[in-house]
Each structure stands twice: as structure tokens, then as C-alpha cells.
């Protein structure tokens, strides 16, 4: 195996806009991963600005097609449950194109983590409305203002069966790192939504800075639901961040595989040198 630099930086040039909320997520993830066994880590990303995160962290990774992060991550985890699988997806990615995959991964309680970079706008295609854009959002595809209400993904995840439901904000570094770390360490499906302003197409820094507040971890589903409902992605209410819900439940792969590791039945390892040659 090739030796990894402790900061997990890569040679890829970062092409996010200055001020992008993705930088905070990247830095948190690098710090968390650098304290983990990176040989057993897999990052899975979708399509969108967020997707480039896998280019910037020196661990094994998988670019999926649009929206398919939770499904691909499920496959990886099932084939080799010894791996820690962390998915990264955008709001257009996981809430639009691939919402059903997100819901079924939660329903199955696969032991993976899905981190949503939610900027509430399609950034890479330069500024269209998404499933969590506020009602009346004037984007390039909705110049008259969107007539749809956003849905609340945390509520959806709670109902679908996610056993870890959390939200953070890219401009609250301590909370961000805490939430991601606990999400990754949770046994079962972890859903972590990061409110991540798109500085270029939907600058929400002031909006969040005024409204975001941290909560203590909640016990009980009813209270979690109440807290999650406090902000509906459209209104001007305060926005709670932190861990809303946590539950211990058997995971999909534990029930399915009974300690069998399919990938170990016949396993070929592609060495770093060989990989370099291929690339």
C-alpha cells in the first residue's frame, strides 16, 4: 500500500468557489479520517460540487452516478462489512434524483453514514431550485419563484428508519466535527445533513448565522420530531443543529450476512503501484 500523508491531502487542485461551505466539511472530514484506520475507509460521492470531495481526501473512494450514493455505499458495505463506508451527497443528488435510495438505506439500517452537503441550490449547474430550496425561491429555472414547498429531510429520515439523524452547519466547526464523527461511529444508518451555503448562487451565511443554534442531544422520538419540525426550510424560525435522534438497532448486514464477509471469500488486492500504472 502507498504511504498516506497524515493530513490526507491530495495533489488535486481545489476548484470550489472561495467562501464555499464545502471547505469546512472537507477540513472536518480530513481531521476525523486522519485519526481513523484509513485502509478500512471508503468515501462514496455523487454528482455535484460536493462530489469533488473525494478528489481532495487521500482515501479510497467511489464516484457514483447522480443520486446513487446510498445504494452504492450499501453494496460496498454488504460485500465487506469490515469497511467504514461514508457517503457524501448533495441535496439535488440525494433529495432529488436519488431520494428513494436514501429512504431505503435508512429503512434497511445499513451501517453506513450519508453526509448531505445541503446548499439548497444546484451549484454545479449554476443556480437552480432544489427539493429544499425555500418556497418562492427565484433560481435560474424558477425566475418567477418556486411554487413548491421544500420537504424536511430529517423528518423523512426519521420516518424511513434512520437510526442516527443529525444536522449541522458548516460555519459551526466544533458542532460540525462532533456531528460527523458521532455519525460515522454510530452503528447503523447515520444521516447527517450539513447546511452548507453556496457563496456564489445562494449565499445563506447571514440567514443561518442569525438563526442557527445548537441543541443538546434529545432523547425520545417524539421530542426529536418536535425539534425537527421547528424549522421547515422555508420559514424564518430558528434552526436547531445537533443530534436529534439516535437508536441502537440490528443492522441490515448483521441480519443478512451472519458474520460472513462476501468480499473475503476470494479477494484480489490491487496494489498501489499497479493502480498508479492503470491511472
Amino acid at each position: 500500500m502507498t504511504e498516506k500523508k497524515s493530513d490526507l491531502k491530495t495533489y488535486a487542485k481545489n476548484t470550489w468557489c472561495p467562501g464555499c461551505g464545502n471547505f469546512a466539511i472537507l477540513n472536518s472530514v480530513r481531521k476525523i479520517f486522519s485519526e481513523m484506520d484509513t485502509e478500512k475507509l471508503v468515501m462514496v460521492s455523487g454528482i455535484g460540487c460536493h462530489g469533488k470531495i473525494v478528489d481532495y481526501v487521500d482515501v479510497s473512494s467511489f464516484y457514483t452516478i447522480h443520486g446513487r450514493v446510498p445504494a452504492t455505499a450499501t453494496g460496498i458495505k454488504l460485500a465487506n462489512p469490515e469497511l467504514t463506508v461514508v457517503g457524501f451527497a448533495g441535496d439535488g443528488d440525494a433529495y432529488g434524483e436519488g431520494l428513494l435510495h436514501l429512504m431505503f438505506a435508512a429503512k434497511r439500517n445499513v451501517d453506513i453514514t450519508v453526509i448531505i452537503h445541503n446548499n439548497r441550490v444546484y451549484g454545479l449547474t449554476t443556480g437552480q431550485f432544489t427539493p429544499t430550496s425555500p418556497e418562492g425561491f427565484k433560481g435560474k429555472s424558477t425566475p418567477r419563484g418556486s411554487v413548491e414547498r421544500p420537504f424536511n429531510p430529517l423528518l423523512l429520515m426519521l420516518d424511513a428508519g434512520a437510526t442516527f439523524v443529525a444536522r449541522s452547519y458548516s460555519n459551526r466547526m466544533k458542532n460540525l466535527r462532533m456531528v460527523i464523527e458521532k455519525g460515522i461511529n454510530h452503528r447503523g444508518f447515520s444521516f447527517v445533513e450539513i447546511l452548507q451555503p453556496c457563496y456564489t448562487y445562494f449565499n445563506t451565511y447571514d440567514y443561518y448565522n442569525e438563526r442557527v443554534y445548537e441543541i443538546d442531544e434529545i432523547s425520545g422520538r417524539e421530542d426529536a420530531e418536535k425539534k425537527i419540525r421547528e424549522w421547515d426550510y422555508s420559514s424564518d424560525s430558528r434552526i436547531p443543529i445537533g443530534i436529534f435522534y439516535r437508536e441502537e438497532r440490528d443492522t441490515f448486514e448483521e441480519k443478512m450476512l451472519d458474520n460472513l464477509i462476501p468480499a473475503k471469500r476470494k479477494r484480489k488486492v490491487i496494489s498501489g503501484k499497479l493502480l498508479e500504472k492503470i491511472v
Binding site: 449547474t125 449554476t126 437552480q128 435560474k140 429555472s141 424558477t142 425566475p143 418567477r144
Partner: peptide, 9 residues
């Protein structure tokens, strides 16, 4: 994208 954006305009 910009085809339908122009139509959106």
C-alpha cells in the same frame, strides 16, 4: 441547462 433556463425566463 441553459436551454430550459431561457425557456424559464
Amino acid at each position: 441547462t441553459e436551454i430550459v433556463e431561457r425557456l424559464a425566463d
